[in-house]
């Protein structure tokens, strides 16, 4: 149904992007927020995107052009609250899950957002963890890539020389295995629990969620391109993909981030408290 709005979305997206690019870092754009499915219903207003990180400042250590060495600090350009196939477009949720997303967006716009994992200091889940306005440090060792996320000190381990275990206890970040296809690192993640959302707005996933991430250095290693594919036969009509870019930021050092310290957003009776 919302597919009929795609052309209009692309047009609005271009305007929004222009607006976003003309404002300082970290400031929300869009004076007139988009709404879910371009409905015009203000109770379904989407949180505007953030500009996110820019390229490393002049004088920073030059990027490492080795396509098979992803080690270093990377920082997302742009930040979307809704992680669909394109900005402002929701994931292809089945109707019953679209209704849940509408419910969550309305709760957010009433100022009483439903409690989600990060507000309880639980890991963000996938693919949401990769959509973070905080740096990600990749440590690359022979059998592994380790993603050290500044946000809430999340850790992802991507195993290069083993398959998924036959039996997996579902976890917040699942089990990730990777392999190289030419200059692209392909990361397959399963074994995720269903206690997180696909995105900040609250798109649902099940334990059948699978993400496939394809990472490739571009621009001589100054950027890391991600193609994220999301599959979930329970909540989604069909798999979908989106593209993201992370900047090489050798000038940034991940900081200590302790969610549990004086968590002002801790939920009360299932509602996130915003102080």
């Amino acid at each position: 149904m919302y597919l009929t709005h795609n052309e209009r979305w692309a047009w609005m997206g271009a305007i929004a992007l222009t607006t976003v690019l003309s404002i300082p870092d970290g400031v929300a754009a869009a004076p007139a927020p988009r709404t879910l499915l371009d409905s015009g219903d203000a109770t379904l207003a989407l949180t505007p995107p953030l500009r996110g990180a820019t390229a490393a400042p002049p004088g920073s250590a030059p990027p490492n052009p080795d396509p098979h060495d992803l080690e270093g600090v990377w920082y997302l350009q742009g930040y979307e609250y809704l992680l669909g196939p394109e900005p402002g477009v929701p994931p292809p949720l089945k109707p019953e899950y679209m209704k849940i997303l509408e419910r969550r967006i309305r709760a957010k716009n009433r100022g009483t957002p439903e409690a989600d994992a990060p507000t309880q200091c639980l890991p963000h889940g996938m693919p949401r963890l990769m959509e973070s306005p905080y740096p990600i440090e990749i440590v690359q060792t022979p059998d592994r890539l380790t993603f050290l996320h500044e946000v809430a000190h999340n850790v992802r381990r991507i195993w290069l020389n083993r398959a998924h275990p036959a039996v997996l206890r579902p976890t917040f970040l699942g089990d990730s295995v990777g392999h190289w296809e030419g200059e692209t690192l392909v990361v397959d993640t399963i074994g995720l629990n269903d206690r997180t959302f696909i995105d900040d707005e609250g798109s649902s996933h099940s334990t059948q969620l699978r993400t496939v991430e394809r990472y490739r250095k571009i621009d001589g290693g100054a950027q890391l391109e991600l193609s994220m594919t999301v599959e979930d036969p329970v909540t989604l009509e069909h798999p979908y993909s989106y593209r993201r870019v992370y900047h090489w930021r050798p000038d940034i050092r991940p900081q200590e981030y302790i969610c549990e310290e004086n968590n002002r957003n801790a939920p009360v009776d299932g509602v996130t408290v915003a102080k």
Binding site: E71, L148, N154, V155, P254
Partner: peptide, 20 residues
């Protein structure tokens, strides 16, 4: 322990705490 040229990382099981 993940030992690299620029840093040595300690990643603890305890609540996933990282140290550099």
């Amino acid at each position: 322990i993940l030992q690299r040229d620029k840093a040595v990382y300690f990643i603890h099981q305890l609540n996933r705490l990282p140290r550099r």
